Amino acid sequence: MIEPEGKGSAAQEIANTGADTAGATTGATLGMLLGGPGGAVFGAAVGPPLSHAFRKIGAEINNRYISPREDKRVASALQHAIERTGEKLEEGKEIRNDGFFDEETDSRSTADEIIEGALIAAQREHEERKIEYIGSLIANICFDESLDSSQSNALISTAERMSWRQIRILSYISRLQEFTGRNREAHTFDFVSIRGLELPPDDFLHEFSELQQMRLLMDLEAFMDFPLDPEKYVVSKFGRQLYSLMELDSV
Rank of each mutant, 00 (worst) to 15 (best):
I173M: 06
A111F: 03
Y243T: 11
K130I: 09
M246D: 01
E70N: 04
E87T: 06
D20L: 11
D225Y: 06
L228D: 00
S236V: 02
P49I: 09
H187P: 01
D225A: 12
I173A: 05
V41I: 10
G239V: 05
R108T: 15
K93W: 15
E127A: 14
R55P: 03
Q241C: 00
M162T: 04
A81Q: 09
R240T: 04
Q177F: 00
E91V: 03
L220A: 06
R129I: 02
E70F: 00
K130D: 10
V192F: 15
E198H: 09
L89Y: 15
G92D: 13
Q241Y: 00
D71G: 07
G8W: 13
L155A: 05
Q177S: 11
L30V: 06
Y233G: 02
K72G: 11
D144K: 07
D249K: 06
E231V: 10
S67V: 10
A44N: 07
R64N: 10
I156N: 01
G31N: 05
R124Q: 10
L50V: 15
I138D: 00
G43I: 02
F208Y: 11
Q212G: 10
N153V: 06
L78N: 01
L205R: 03
R161M: 02
R108C: 15
E87G: 08
I57V: 11
R64M: 13
L33I: 09
D190Q: 05
R182E: 14
E210S: 07
D225R: 07
Q177T: 14
T85H: 10
L137I: 12
E125I: 02
Q123H: 09
A77L: 03
F42N: 01
E178A: 05
R215G: 00
L89S: 14
A19W: 10
A22H: 09
I141M: 03
K237S: 14
E5R: 12
L137R: 04
F189S: 15
V192A: 13
T21H: 11
I134R: 06
D102I: 12
R73Y: 13
D219K: 08
S76Y: 07
E87A: 12
S193E: 13
T21E: 14
L228H: 01
P49H: 06
V41T: 14
S163L: 03
L34S: 05
M246Q: 05
N140P: 04
L50G: 06
T26D: 09
I156C: 01
C142Y: 02
D203H: 12
I134N: 09
P230K: 01
P49Q: 08
Q212S: 09
E91A: 14
D225P: 00
L242F: 04
L137G: 04
P4K: 09
A111L: 01
N183C: 04
A44R: 11
D202M: 03
T25S: 08
I95R: 08
L119M: 11
W164I: 06
E178P: 00
L147T: 02
E113I: 13
E104T: 15
S174H: 05
H206W: 12
S149A: 07
V251A: 11
L30Q: 04
S250K: 07
N62Y: 08
T21D: 09
S163M: 03
P4Q: 08
V74I: 05
A75D: 02
R175E: 13
G23M: 08
I131V: 12
A122Y: 08
E104D: 13
M32S: 14
N97P: 02
Q79S: 07
L199M: 09
G8P: 13
S236C: 05
M246G: 04
E178L: 03
L50N: 02
D144Y: 01
T188N: 07
T105A: 10
